[in-house]
Amino acid sequence: TTVKLGDIKVTFDNPEKAKKYAQKLAKIYQLTVHVHGDTIHVK
C-alpha cells in the first residue's frame, strides 16, 4: 500500500499502518485521505 502526498511516496507492507500514517499526515497538514485501491492519497 502506497501513501502519496505531493511528490512524497511511502510504501507499506501493512495496509493498516499505511492508513494510520496517512491519517497522521492528513492531521498535520490539515488535508483529507482518499483511498484508491492500493494507493492512499493525502490531499
Score class of each variant (00 low, 15 high):
8 I>S: 06
21 Y>G: 01
18 A>P: 00
27 K>N: 09
32 T>M: 08
6 G>H: 09
12 F>K: 00
36 H>V: 14
22 A>Q: 01
19 K>Q: 10
38 D>Q: 10
8 I>V: 10
17 K>Q: 12
14 N>L: 06
10 V>N: 02
6 G>W: 10
33 V>E: 01
10 V>I: 14
29 Y>P: 04
41 H>L: 12
20 K>D: 10
7 D>S: 15
30 Q>G: 15
7 D>A: 14
37 G>K: 05
16 E>Q: 09
38 D>C: 10
30 Q>Y: 08
16 E>M: 08
38 D>Y: 06
9 K>M: 13
34 H>E: 14
27 K>S: 09
33 V>P: 00
22 A>S: 02
25 L>Q: 01
2 T>Y: 07
32 T>D: 07
4 K>L: 13
22 A>C: 08
7 D>I: 14
25 L>G: 00
33 V>A: 03
20 K>M: 11
41 H>Y: 14
24 K>R: 11
28 I>P: 00
18 A>E: 01
12 F>M: 02
16 E>W: 07
31 L>N: 03
10 V>H: 03
15 P>I: 11
38 D>F: 07
12 F>H: 00
34 H>I: 14
29 Y>V: 04
15 P>H: 11
11 T>H: 13
22 A>W: 07
24 K>P: 00
35 V>E: 07
32 T>E: 11
36 H>T: 12
15 P>M: 12
26 A>D: 02
19 K>A: 09
17 K>C: 15
29 Y>F: 11
36 H>K: 11
32 T>G: 06
8 I>A: 05
12 F>W: 02
21 Y>C: 14
26 A>W: 04
17 K>R: 11
13 D>S: 12
25 L>V: 05
41 H>C: 14
3 V>Y: 00
36 H>W: 10
33 V>R: 00
43 K>T: 14
19 K>T: 07
12 F>T: 00
29 Y>G: 05
4 K>A: 08
16 E>G: 07
43 K>I: 15
16 E>K: 09
4 K>F: 13
11 T>Y: 14
41 H>N: 06
39 T>Q: 06
10 V>E: 01
32 T>Y: 08
28 I>E: 09
36 H>F: 12
42 V>S: 01
1 T>C: 15
18 A>T: 01
16 E>H: 08
3 V>E: 02
12 F>I: 02
38 D>I: 08
24 K>H: 13
1 T>S: 05
35 V>P: 03
28 I>Q: 10
6 G>M: 07
1 T>M: 12
19 K>F: 15
2 T>R: 05
40 I>S: 02
43 K>G: 14
12 F>N: 00
